[in-house]
Amino acid sequence: MAGAVQETPRVRTLLLDAPGWADHRAGQHLDVRLTAEDGYQAERSYSIASAPGEELAITIERLDDGEVSPYLVDEAADGDQFEVRGPIGGYFVWDASDPRPILLVGGGSGVVPLRSMARHRERVGSGTPMKLLYSSRTWDDVIYRDELETIGIDVVYTLTREQPPGWTGYARRIDRELLEETAWPAEQKPRVFVCGSTRFVDAAADGLLELGYEPGWIRTERFGATG
């Protein structure tokens, strides 16, 4: 571990110095394995937050009853060592040479691999239209909030639990009507990446299919409630 950024009270980005690490593709993840003194091992997958070519970073949300995330968010310090395996996955990846408009749909910490894609687009100077629909519980739960202002893509927020005074954005879970108002029209045949909880991903993907999107355009990554 070679540094950390506290993103929100529950979310932290860890910079990792992993000798021999092969560069990743935007959207991939890695596995972290922690081994206790008695030999007990716990392994979890985390999305890579950095763009290809950048210092390796993962962003982790603390799940209070989790085995791994409380350590990584609250305790891990520079110089700590743990095993990582990866980069992993050739399904949930965006290739910058793909000319199709990109729709990113993230729920909570599901924004992490999408941030890697947005940073990648910016770093390679891609002109591909990219839009992010990002669902968070509250404004304080929005990860990468400052960065998303300047990353050069359209970001549409919806705050499902609590909104700041004067909030004029969406204030509900992503549904068909919200998608209809914000997603690229189906005629543009966009490529879509959806990441979040199982419930979130199912709702977003089903809504897009109702708008005429084809299943093959939509790539999904679902994470469960184990951390």
Partner: peptide, 23 residues
Amino acid sequence: PRTLDGNAIGGLMLELFGVDLTP
């Protein structure tokens, strides 16, 4: 809601089979 998807076993499959099976 605890369901994961096949992305989550990509690392294990890579270790067992030596290839990325997620796609």
